[in-house]
């Protein structure tokens, strides 16, 4: 298939979302991410970064507008189909690692294909972990340093070869040196795996790493839903 015909990794149109019993509204008029493209969305805390990522992952329902991930309208999928689509098409990295304690590093990575009902490839998990510098793959996750844990989380986000990786303040819990290393690894790994990357952060130091930086407009977010809809 020629590259021009490949669907964008992400296509957001006229998105509006509001929490129940809240006048706060998140608005994203238009947002497109080409395959393999990497984008940093800058926003202050409370601007709705996590909310936007949850919407894209199909974990929240938008009030208006649509979200397509690799050409599929995720909110048109119901129940199990949406869960499976999320597991296979999206990878997520969070501010805190959100790994499963009691499992080893390798098992945490393997939990992703298991839950997405994809064939579990130990070889791919080993490859990713070694690329990310995790040698003790059988160490319990709680015995790893915070930096190592974040790298395991990156491996887990990529193990199912997703079209799009969503990263929510991925370096917020790391010291500057570890943060640099983790961002290097995240960006390189996404590149290597052919995944697009949407990173949201309030950290201005991160801007230089991305060719494309966009603000999550604070004024748009502040507008009440009713007043903003002409």
């Amino acid at each position: 298939m020629p590259p021009a015909l490949a669907p964008p990794a992400l296509l957001v149109r006229n998105l509006a979302f509001t929490y129940p019993a809240s006048s706060w509204t998140l608005r994203v008029p238009e947002l497109t991410l080409a395959p393999r493209e990497q984008l940093l969305m800058q926003a202050t805390s409370g601007a709705g970064k996590s909310t936007l990522l949850s919407l894209i992952a199909g974990l929240l329902e938008p009030a208006e507008g649509s979200i397509e991930v690799q050409g599929t309208r995720i909110h048109a999928l119901r129940g199990a189909a949406r869960d499976r689509f999320r597991g296979r098409t999206l990878g997520m990295v969070f501010q805190t690692h959100h790994l499963i304690s009691g499992l080893s590093a390798l098992e945490n990575v393997l939990a992703a294909p298991l839950m997405a009902s994809l064939p579990v490839s130990a070889a791919r998990a080993h490859e990713l972990l070694s690329q990310l510098g995790i040698v003790r793959v059988s160490a319990k996750i709680d015995d790893l340093s915070v930096g190592q844990q974040q790298r395991v989380a990156i491996a887990r986000a990529l193990v199912c070869n997703p079209a799009l990786v969503l990263a929510d303040e991925p370096t917020a819990s790391l010291d500057p040196a570890n943060a640099q290393a983790a961002m290097d690894l995240l960006q390189q790994s996404c590149q290597a795996a052919g995944a697009a990357l949407l990173c949201v952060s309030h950290d201005p130091a991160m801007a230089h790493r991305f060719a494309r930086v966009e603000p999550l407009a604070a004024d748009a977010a502040a507008q009440p839903l009713a007043g903003a809809t002409p």
């Binding site: 080893s104 390798l106 098992e107 080993h126």
Partner: peptide, 20 residues
Amino acid sequence: MSTAGSISDMTLVLRGMRTR
């Protein structure tokens, strides 16, 4: 088990029970 690289739903259940 972990080095062999196999995991199942039962692994999740049993590890969870062991953790608690």
